[in-house]
């Protein structure tokens, strides 16, 4: 048990070095010549570290009100 505990502790310490806590950067990407902003609706020019999501982001996991009704696609 003691050996196992030591191994786990060592692994945790190693992981901490391998994957240090994320540092959020507010800088724009340094890579050149990407897709221009006007053709990239997922980009926010004022917040270069953010990827914008569409308003229907939760639609995929919406529940039916009661079992047995047709899905929206089928009903159309």
């Amino acid at each position: 048990m003691k050996t196992t505990g030591c191994i786990i502790l060592l692994a945790v310490v190693a992981m901490a070095f391998a994957f240090p806590a994320a540092v959020l950067s507010a800088e724009k990407s340094t890579l050149k010549a990407g897709i221009p902003d006007e053709w990239a609706p997922w980009k926010d020019p004022n917040n270069p570290n953010v990827i914008i999501l569409q308003d229907d982001k939760d639609k995929f996991f919406e529940r039916r009100e009661r079992p047995g009704i047709q899905s929206e696609r089928r009903a159309s």
Binding site: P41, Q54, D56, K59, F60
Partner: peptide
């Protein structure tokens, strides 16, 4: 028609 949060995905890229 749906992106489910993402604008460009495997089924929507031509719409965008």
């Amino acid at each position: 028609m749906y992106g489910f949060g993402r604008f460009v995905h495997n089924g929507s890229f031509l719409k965008v």
